[in-house]
């Protein structure tokens, strides 16, 4: 991911020459220990509460463990994975997860950037608009999902608005009950909820672009598109990586919205991998099968992150 880039930037100073290094070795060893000591609380907590359960999930994927069962657990090798790769619902959830991410990542990043450009001024009311755009971010996803569930109903607020705005010509669909519109509806709501956060991150990038670049550009009399294309966009290189990674991870983990609004339906059109893992793990009590889904999910996220890193690196 973007991590090693930044670390490299962090430790950007050229390595000290060998000789010097050897002289301060003992000191640096003490420094290393002290440093590890300061990092220890975070490392220990992460190990205890993420690493241990993750390893457990990993092991469970190769067993027949059930959520509720009096039977002893046995290792069953790859059985769960074989079953998984013969399960059409699994492929559907994989596809839905990628579909959601493929739309949300560019749309949310793009909308956030447009909004960031809009509010990156010193005009009056700017901070008012920033606040408004940030409101959904501070509202819980469960609450937001319930609210939109209500608004997406066949005769709900959104369809009423569509009806009124089109002077009665357009009747909105039954958003969450139509396999063609259910995922777009969840996408729209998710972007609405999350876009404010990424607007703020873009804003931070915009404010770090050196002012003289803009001045030079305006002396050359470039159009505003050219200014964006040749000054702003390259200046946002590192911000892009951060926005990309955070939205991608958030998008691939889609769960709450689906759980509250559609329970994966209709016709599996909103079943995602995390939802499927939770559904099979808790409701259907197939702990080991759910763990297998989770494992495949981790692998997917790693692959996507690696691909993204590769792509962003090439352009850089």
């Amino acid at each position: 991911m973007l991590l090693s880039q930044t670390t490299r930037a962090a430790t950007g100073a050229p390595l000290p020459p060998r000789r010097r290094r050897r002289i301060i070795l003992s000191g640096s060893r003490g420094e290393s220990l002290t440093g590890l000591g300061m990092a220890a609380p975070a490392l220990i907590l992460l190990a205890l509460f993420i690493l241990v359960p993750a390893i457990l999930a990993f092991v469970l994927a190769f067993t027949n463990a059930q959520l509720i069962s009096p039977n002893p657990i046995q290792f069953t090798g790859l059985t769960n994975f074989i079953q998984l790769f013969h399960d059409p619902v699994f492929y559907r959830s994989l596809l839905n997860t990628l579909y959601f991410a493929a739309v949300v990542v560019p749309v949310q990043a793009g909308a956030a950037l447009v909004m960031a450009v809009l509010v990156n001024t010193k005009t009056r009311g700017t901070s008012f608009f920033r606040t408004i755009y940030f409101l959904p971010v501070v509202t819980s996803m469960v609450v937001v999902s319930m609210l939109w569930l209500f608004m997406y109903q066949q005769h709900g607020l959104i369809n009423q608005v569509i009806h009124q705005l089109s002077f009665g010509l357009v009747t909105g669909p039954d958003w969450l009950n139509n396999p063609a519109t259910s995922m777009p509806a969840i996408i729209l709501m998710s972007v609405w909820q999350g876009v404010g956060f990424h607007m703020i991150i873009w804003l931070s990038g915009l404010q770090t672009i050196a002012p003289d670049l803009y001045e030079a550009a305006s002396l050359d009399g470039v159009t505003s598109w050219q200014r964006f294309r040749y000054v702003t966009w390259p200046g946002l290189r590192n911000t892009r990586a951060l926005v990309l990674v955070t939205i991608t991870i958030q998008a691939l983990s889609l769960f709450t919205q689906v759980s509250v609004m559609t329970q994966g339906g209709p016709l599996y059109s909103t079943t995602t991998m995390v939802y499927e893992a939770v559904q099979t793990g808790y409701q259907q009590q197939q702990t080991s099968y759910a763990s297998a889904i989770s494992l495949v999910f981790f692998a997917l996220v790693l692959i996507v992150a690696a691909v993204q890193r590769f792509l962003t690196r090439e352009k850089a």
């Binding site: 690493l51 241990v52 092991v59 463990a65 059930q66 509720i68 002893p72 657990i73």
Partner: peptide
């Protein structure tokens, strides 16, 4: 050590 911990967890986690 971590793996053993994981295995023993697995062994107990959903037994009666």
């Amino acid at each position: 050590a971590v793996l053993v911990a994981g295995l023993s967890l697995a062994g107990c986690s959903s037994g009666p």
